[in-house]
Design a protein around this nucleic acid. Structure first.
Lengths: 141, 141
DNA sequence: TTGAATTAAGACATTTTTATCTTATTTAAA
DNA sequence: TTTAAATAAGATAAAAATGTCTTAATTCAA
């Protein structure tokens, strides 16, 4: 569904939202350890989110990453689009490069409703919505 | 969404359903030409569908592939599962290997409804449903 | 101002996916 | 029975995704 890179990105930001005191940077090494994601791989994933303006980073002692936007303003869709690309769920299901209302592929119409459900889920869910779940139960990242 | 391999598989079977006179084999070379899919790559894609029992193949002159099951009985989900794997849409969204009702990931509950919509779309749509669309309009494979 | 801590960046390695090529095997028909 | 036509299968190549390592740049604090 999502690339592994994207999964790492989502998990990291949920982790960050859970930990965030919003003024201090959280070190990537710590995230890497707690979420069991290879450190050097993770730095590259997070660089994409930095370029996308979702987080900012600081080098050196006490460095790390922190949110540039408020977690209640960050949608799942933003994260996915930043990492897997804007077209992640708007591409033609069978790979036709010109597939639209005028010239639809055989799946186009049937795919519209499920696609809407998925994209609405991604654009409705903010990081805050998600960490609320983490506070309650046995829910995990 | 689907792997390229899977896209090729779906397109080929829709093409076959459209062409099918159900007794003759259709050559892979012909499918390859008409759908603009690399021939040797396509033979391997179709071998997966043969192994899955959806089509059968014949070597030699007048060889090719044909359906083993009737197109009205072949669901999109079968094709996807045969090529991209059974768990294509049941895997945890963020990659946790033990994610279920008891120990859900943060996305688990929110993902349930969109997932249902997608899997229902895949399991409702048969090849026959799809080629009906091809007969009408400007619809393409 | 120096040193330790930390991310950035680029080179490199591995794995998976996609693509190609060659040879073997099978089938139908002359 | 031979030949042409076709898929099967395995080797190899290329590209993309994932993972690792090294060096550079930056930051804080002693």
């Amino acid at each position: 569904m999502f690339s592994l890179t994207c999964e790492h990105g989502i998990r990291s930001l949920i982790y960050l939202a859970k930990r965030d005191d919003s003024s201090n940077f959280i070190s990537i090494r710590e995230i890497s350890n707690d979420l069991d994601i290879p450190f050097h791989f993770l730095t590259k994933v997070l660089q994409k989110l930095t370029e996308a303006g979702i987080i900012e980073s600081s080098r050196g002692a006490k460095g790390g990453i922190r949110f540039l936007k408020k977690p209640e303003m960050i949608k799942l869709s933003e994260i996915v689009f930043a990492i897997d690309g804007e077209k992640t769920f708007s591409k033609c299901l069978i790979g036709l490069n010109k597939c639209d209302e005028q010239n639809p592929c055989v799946l186009h119409d049937l795919w519209m409703e499920p696609k809407r459900t998925v994209t609405s889920f991604l654009s409705k869910s903010t990081l805050n919505d998600l960490i609320i779940r983490l506070n309650n139960d046995k829910t995990r990242i």
